[in-house]
Each structure stands twice: as C-alpha cells, then as structure tokens.
Write a protein that binds this DNA or RNA. Structure first.
Length: 213
DNA sequence: CCCGTGATTTAT
DNA sequence: TAAATCACGGGG
C-alpha cells in the first residue's frame, strides 16, 4: 500500500538524472514535478522555469572561483541534493545540485505550475482568493514557491533521491522539445558581467506560471 | 520606480 | 568588529 509520499504510477527521478551538467539537468527538469510532503500532505507543482549555474567559471554562481563557505557547502554534494539559502532578509531559494561530488553546479527552481495542495499553498502564501489569476502568482518566483511549499534552510543538503519530504517525480518521459523551451538571461545577476547575459534561464513557452515573460 | 530585511561574506 | 552585498517580492 502506497505511503503518502508515493502516488500509484509515479516514479521518482533517479540519481543519474541529476549527475549531469547543469544546463542538461535544467532543461530536463522542465515539465517534471516537484513534490513536498508537509504535514502528511502532498504539495506539488510542475517545474516551468529554471536557471543553470555553472560553477567555478560562472561569475553569477555562489561557487565562483571555487568559493566554499558554510552557506554554499551543499553545492559541493553529489547531484540530486538540495541547496537552499536565505536571501534579502526574507526569502528562500531552492536549488537542485547537479554534477558530481566537489563539482559545485546547481539549478535554481524559479517557478512551478501548482497541481496538488493548492489550498495549503494559498494559506502559506497568505492569499485568500482562489481565482485562476491569483493561482498564477502562487509559485511564480523562487521565493514564492519556497513559501508555498514550506521549503527553508531545514531542507538544505537534503537528498532528493533518498529523502521522504522533498523529491522530483517523473511527469514526462522525455525532455520537452527545444521549440517548447525559451532561453534567456538569468534574473537578478546584473553584477556578473558577461555571465549575466548568457542564456542560462529556461522556461516553458507560453506557460502563464513563469515569473515573468 | 523604490525599498524592507537579516544572514552571510568581505573588508578593515 | 564594521560595512557591504544580495539567484526577491510587493507596493506605488
């Protein structure tokens, strides 16, 4: 009999999915389902927007030039772990580590299309209305989705393959075709010189749940 | 457009 | 020990 963490017919993405380069993992994550088990309930959404961070060469990455501090230590774990940090005094950001051990690359999850547990998500976000328009804003940003799914620093370094509270389920069998993915510059990294302009942000074309068009 | 917010990092 | 910085979001 299935536990609350496992739906009939669902498959969790395996380790090998994540131990690839961060751009490949980022694109392959679009269309897959992020699941958070909170107080026995499934809070889940389809991943519709991501950003790849490319490690020591990437001026926008926390691991730029091999920086390794208590905050970003989780980036150095094996692919398939969580890297969660606190930013701007208010928000959390959830990343999925890619690559191998000591290869500090990651994918920032920027937006979800909510599919399960919407009532709880609205409560967590302090949103009372349940219109299509307001549900579009439920998880349309890295800080918003962390608030909706109750992802905070307790989740930092969590193993998304072995853990029971946070994981990725396979919702589609193959990566979305290129013509359904839009690539562009990453958000909020203007300080990173030429790296700020590289097309390392990816989102599902015409999906209304992305953080911005 | 502007600005709160506080942990983390970096500079003295 | 102090200052600067910041993978954001909400309100004009």
């Amino acid at each position: 009999m299935p536990s609350s963490a496992t739906m009939p017919g669902s498959t969790r993405l395996p380790r090998g999915f994540f131990t690839r380069d961060s751009v490949t993992v980022a694109r392959a994550l679009l269309g897959q389902r992020l699941v958070r088990i909170h107080q026995g309930e499934r809070l889940a959404g389809t991943i519709v927007e991501v950003e790849a961070y490319r490690g020591v060469d990437d001026a926008a990455a926390h691991s730029h030039r091999g920086r390794r501090t208590p905050r970003n230590e989780a980036m150095y774990l094996l692919g398939g772990h969580a890297y969660v940090y606190f930013i701007y005094g208010i928000h959390h950001c959830f990343n999925i580590v890619a690559g191998g051990v000591d290869e500090p690359v990651a994918v920032l999850i920027r937006a979800l299309e909510p599919v399960e547990g919407l009532a709880a998500m609205r409560t967590h976000r302090g949103i009372t209305s349940a219109t299509a328009a307001s549900d579009r804003r439920l998880c349309s940003g890295p800080g918003k989705l962390c608030e909706a799914l109750v992802i905070d620093r307790e989740m930092n370094a969590a193993d998304l393959i072995a853990g029971d509270v946070l994981f990725i389920e396979q919702a589609i069998q193959r990566p979305l075709p290129d013509d359904r993915i839009v690539a562009g510059p990453r958000v909020g990294v203007d300080y990173a010189g030429e790296w700020a302009e590289k097309p390392l942000r990816f989102f599902v074309r015409d999906n209304p749940h992305v953080s911005r068009a």
